[in-house]
Amino acid sequence: MHRLTGPGLSAFDRHTQSQRSYALLSNQLSEKQIKNLHSQLSSFRTALTSFAVTHRDRIQRDPAFRHQFQQMCASIGVDPLAGPRRGGWWAELVGMGDWAYELGVQIVDVCVSTRERNGGMIEMGELIRVISKLRGLDKEKEKDKIGFGGGGEITEEDIVRSIKTLEPLGAGYQVVDIGGRKFVRSVVKELDQDQAAILALARAQSGRVMEEDLVSQHGWTRERARVALENMLLRDGMCWVDAQDPNGSAYWVPSAMRWD
């Protein structure tokens, strides 16, 4: 009988010992392989990133080139559209990520469903709050699980970027700055100078605007103030009227009122 595989109790010991060494060796080998793969992957990432950056404009502008780029990504098993938002590579560099689109859909959803309440102007903070509620926590966890950018909460920057991706649709979504506060506008019509001035004033006065305020603070004629306010009230539905104010008709802008 061979010594190493000979009978006797010690053979069992030998057997387990050699198994253990094999396992150790295999671990070391696969670790090395993984490390190799990682470095390959990261150099690949860098290459692809620099490629995406260099050809960014062409990828965005030239459909044929974009198609080839996508095919190249597909052939190496990478989906350029399955884009994360942070820590992500090409999707972000090329400026097209599903994440941004998905968020875009939610922005449209919120803007449209609250439009009749706020006349198509929603405050940035409010929008973020509603969308965060809409997304819920579970969904975010799921995202983390498959390795997408963590964090979870939506920032103002995300909204701004996402609205940019909506631009080609011509839906007229825009971020506007009124009196130092950001609003997302979803009404197609242009917000003219006068309306912007009224909204800014409404913000400063907790929502209430009167003809008199515009005359005294902006030097408008009474006519101009009345026309602008009546337009907002009747045509755009952006404000409510209060006929019981002791000083005459008062106009209230819901999106500028503070609700507890």
Binding site: E116, L233, L234, V241, D242, A243, Q244, W252, W259
Partner: peptide
């Protein structure tokens, strides 16, 4: 509700959409 403390809530709104919400 908080809308009950909004002054314009007590006026009939001229804009049909706003009116139906109120």
């Amino acid at each position: 509700p908080s809308i009950h403390s909004a002054p314009p809530f007590f006026t009939q709104q001229p804009n049909p959409t706003t009116l139906s919400i109120a």
